[in-house]
Amino acid sequence: MLKTLISRLPMLVLLASLTTLAAPAAQAQVNPTASSVQEQELMRALQTGDFVAGRVSIPDERAGALIKPGNKGWAGIQGTTLRVISVAAVLVTLTILAAFYAYRGRIRIDSGFSGRVIERFDGIERFGHWLLACSFVVLALTGLNFVVGRWTLLPLVGEDTFGTLSAWFKLAHNFMAWPFMLGLVWVFVTWVGRNLPSKVDVNWLKVAGGLFTRGLHPPAGKFNAGQKLLFWMVILGGVGLSYTGVFMLFPWLAGSPAEWQTYQVIHALFAAFMSVVIFGHIYIGSLGMQGAFSAMGSGKVDLNWAKEHHSLWVEEEVGHGKGAAGKPGAAATPAE
């Protein structure tokens, strides 16, 4: 960009001198210094993203960029647009979840706890999940602080504390990026095979997984269509965040400042999108559904829960003989 502009400059000078030559002949006493490069001409000739540049005698060649009007465009996007989008994404999602909770309440196990459990996720799967989840939460919260901290946390704690906290948050954001990327790869490798689309997914999606209908439980394998969608959104979103994040972390890898700005905008948009998705995920994995959390906690779920939400998977597991472990007696003898 810098080079193109420099190479274009002689042309502009020529243009500028032509205009001077065209001046009335009465001004015969031509002043040689008058045919100089003009700020206005240079600014007019700028293409989007270009900048007015020249040579500097200090060692830092980048200092030769004199006026970069395009930066104001990015400042507007970062300073306003992205902030509005991020805040709106968080608030709208929370509102929707609250409304869903008011409407549907906690999704209970229709047939109650059986008292028998079945292993759903082994240690390797759970480690990957929590690696990804913990690092994500730290990244999301510290990232959000870059966006809205100056309106939320700053007034609460004062400028000194906010500066110190934000510096720590920034370090956390930088270093948590790596466990996050490891978690992403881990989760991808362990679960991709179970997340390929299949025929039952169509039906599951048609009835929205029974989310809005009490007692309706469309058949599903280890992961239902909703979970598969989540999986792919996390993979794509995570890769997008990591890819752009690495460039933000190492700005001079990104090439020109304009490219860095593009990565920053994509990063912030992906972060907002991922937060929306993960809010929903956290809700349904904890408060929203009875019996779901233990799948990632102890790794075991109640057999009735499994039959209702992942019928095909239970058949498969029981068929493999891995089936319901635990205290068979508990289910056989009624509690009374």
Partner: peptide, 25 residues
């Protein structure tokens, strides 16, 4: 208060903000 994030450098049209280290984020 400054955390040295570098955002102001990318916002400034005149390359004014600079940092003591040419390091990463």
């Amino acid at each position: 208060t400054c955390i040295g994030c570098g955002y102001c450098f990318f916002a400034c049209p005149f390359g004014a903000p600079q940092y003591p280290q040419v390091g990463n984020f």
